[in-house]
Design a protein around this nucleic acid. Structure first.
Lengths: 325, 325
DNA sequence: TTGTAAGCGTTATCAT
DNA sequence: ATGATAACGCTTACAA
């Protein structure tokens, strides 16, 4: 592998000049530039990122921490992050934030010693510990979680989104609407959404009915049971994830209830899972891929701090309709 | 951030000695080691990976190239890769191999200048170009694709898996079995599977019926149409991906055919999609996460070259049954 | 416009 | 068992 010195020698200039040309700085004649470029091509020279990073104390690496690597929501955000990073010439270093926060500590340390340009947290909040581990020079941003602390973030307004979703069902004519929540440990997502639902129901003078889920498909069937036990006449179910929504659709049909003729089901997120059931799930969409893209843009624009709220949007597909009369 | 010199000074030894104890080499007394460790803790010293990499010409980074970042199959392999890498102290750099192979070229170059320890290709084959871009010192391995060139890889035997899957349907009593293929451009996956299906059908003296899909959900409905046009009496459909299998299940039910009473559906891969439909898909499973783990183990064991075939396994769920009598 | 030289933080070689 | 020293390949004052 050719080094900057090899190029310099071949072009008959100093390494400093080669560096200037390669990095597009000023201070050389056109003729010199041409000679350098020729040498670069001839030798197939490529900047050594390690050496550059060591000197400049910064690399073009973005750290990306996702809750589980295989998770429909995280995958779509990752897609956006990866695309935006690639466009800007950044590489993405992937880590997962398991239930154990020790994992994330280790990853953050690695990212710091690699002098990452910044880190993106999917569905995780920026804690003082996170900030400390990263040191003062590496910016962090969280995506898809409404952290009210004022840290940099890109997310929808979860309370409002759930409120709007519930209103949609209400406007369709439903009055007996059950809510299937996500993991209650998810304080920054599940709770605000629940508040939005409760508010909309209260405004419409409808009694709320709530069951506790986990966001995962597996929790859908039991959640439906809980809900039906509270009110067997429910005409609509609002699930806080498409996975749970899909489970409810399947389970309902298994029990001989038609969707949406007998009961409507509304999901959340608009992941690919929403279209993998029949009827396809109506859902409260988050622009996940776009959120991933925005996160890298915001992260790299060092003066763009604070939270960014992106619009949610209700997508109607086949799983919602007016209630039976 | 404390450097190795700071630690050396505080412990009253030379940087070389600190390096030795930090890296667990030999050549220091117990007493020295204790002093160094104290200093390391006191100063919160952490090795600078950039500097180390520059010197040793190797970093603990594994490159991971996936076809699309959000793709159920790739996600599960990634999960395994990430976990195994983390356990061994490696970081994972993520890239995507779009339809444009220019993407992959850029990524490979980046990986080389970061002096990656190796790279893993998901669902992509190792071409001479790949090898050349990476240089002689970085090993590559491909996962989930049966490249017959003898390059390092971890995959199932696709021909045999499809043969076994078809045999399973045959043994259930089906004779009119349609095949929904993946993208025919996928020479190393779709073709061998098709051969396996054809062989099993021929052995059983059953006429084959084939439709061309794309592996994606969206191609399932049209594929079903094609198949039914060829033989309206099909009692089983074998789809080369769970996504297409799920689409077929949904579409069949939409048309008033029961699954599995009227027609059986068999998927492929055993991704999470398989359990997101009702009835849940029976499927020919690949141990995707395990394959990801094995890929990193094999990659890092530099003398472990060549292809590794892992076992496939048929998983029966609700979408397959004997044909109607 | 161009070159010289001093690091960045580590590891490896060679002494002692 | 330990230390001095020279790289690794680059960028960046500072000179010229």
């Amino acid at each position: 592998m050719a080094t900057i010195r090899d190029v310099a020698q071949r072009a008959g200039v100093s390494p400093a000049t080669v560096s200037r040309v390669v990095n597009g700085l000023v201070g050389y004649s056109d003729e010199t530039r041409a000679r350098v470029e020729d040498a670069v091509n001839a030798l197939n020279y490529e900047t050594d990122y390690l050496a550059r990073g060591l000197k400049t104390r910064q690399t073009s690496v973005i750290g990306l921490l996702a809750p589980m690597v295989s998770d429909a929501l995280a995958s779509q955000v990752m897609q956006g992050v990866e695309a935006a990073a690639q466009e800007r010439g950044y590489a993405v270093m992937l880590g997962r934030t398991g239930p154990k926060s020790t994992f994330i500590a280790g990853y953050l340390r690695t990212l710091r010693t690699y002098r990452a340009a910044g880190v993106i947290l999917i569905s995780a909040v920026i804690t003082p510990g996170t900030r400390q581990l990263l040191g003062p020079n590496i910016p962090v941003i969280s995506v898809a979680i409404s952290d009210k602390s004022g840290s940099p973030s890109v997310a929808i307004d979860d309370e409002k989104a759930a409120y709007d979703a519930t209103r949609h069902l209400l406007q369709l004519g439903h009055r007996r609407i059950g809510l299937l929540t996500g993991d209650p440990a998810s304080v920054y997502v599940s709770l605000p959404r629940e508040r939005g639902y409760v508010r909309a129901m209260a405004e419409a003078n409808c009694p709320p009915a709530t069951a506790t889920g986990s966001f995962f498909y597996e929790s859908g069937a039991a959640g439906l049971d809980q809900l039906l036990a509270q009110d067997p006449q429910l005409t609509a179910i609002f699930a806080m994830s498409d996975e749970m929504g899909a489970a409810v659709v399947n389970e309902l049909q298994k029990r001989g209830r038609r969707v949406p003729e007998d009961v409507s089901v509304l999901g959340f997120d608009n992941t690919s899972t929403a279209v993998h059931v029949h009827p396809a799930l109506s859902t409260m969409a988050q622009p996940l891929e776009e959120m991933g893209r925005m996160a890298v843009a915001k992260l790299l624009r060092s003066r763009d701090l604070g939270p960014k709220i992106v619009p949610h949007q209700l997508i109607e597909r086949g799983s919602t309709a007016p209630p039976p009369s």
